[in-house]
Amino acid sequence: MDVDRAHQCIRELCRHVLLVEDSILIALDAEVLVTDLGAERVSIAASVLEALRSLENAPPTLAILDVKLEGETCFPIADKLQEKQIPYAFATGYSDKATFPDRHKLAPCMTKPYNEQALRRVIEELIGGADQCGIQRLQQTG
């Protein structure tokens, strides 16, 4: 994959990013990071309910999920994204994937705090696992 094509793939995948994060400051920071990677639209959701509503209203091309939200986990959102075949990656404070449900263990994951390199790495991982430029992701059913 040549450099231009890689950039195009990343831009394509980041066109509309859904950031699920219960801390606004972290979300705003992530917003800057994904915008730098070429995101045209960024949606921010702080809870499972908000995120599900957002992805029903305007399905994103990529979702970054904070695993632990206020009093809940993001896995119901991940289930919905898997169902809709929308690529997603986790951001977590825990560096332990053992607590993840089996069906989400294969999804890329970055530990908090994360920077642009970490974000770029998970996006590349998603592209690597897709048939074509971030259009269809490999099913990761456990």
């Binding site: 801390s23 400051l25 972290i26 920071d29 632990k68 404070g93 825990y94 530990t111 908090k112 705090p113």
Partner: peptide, 13 residues
Amino acid sequence: SHRTKNQLSVLMS
């Protein structure tokens, strides 16, 4: 640990 990481992320932001 989670909260600490979150706080660190906030500081980084």
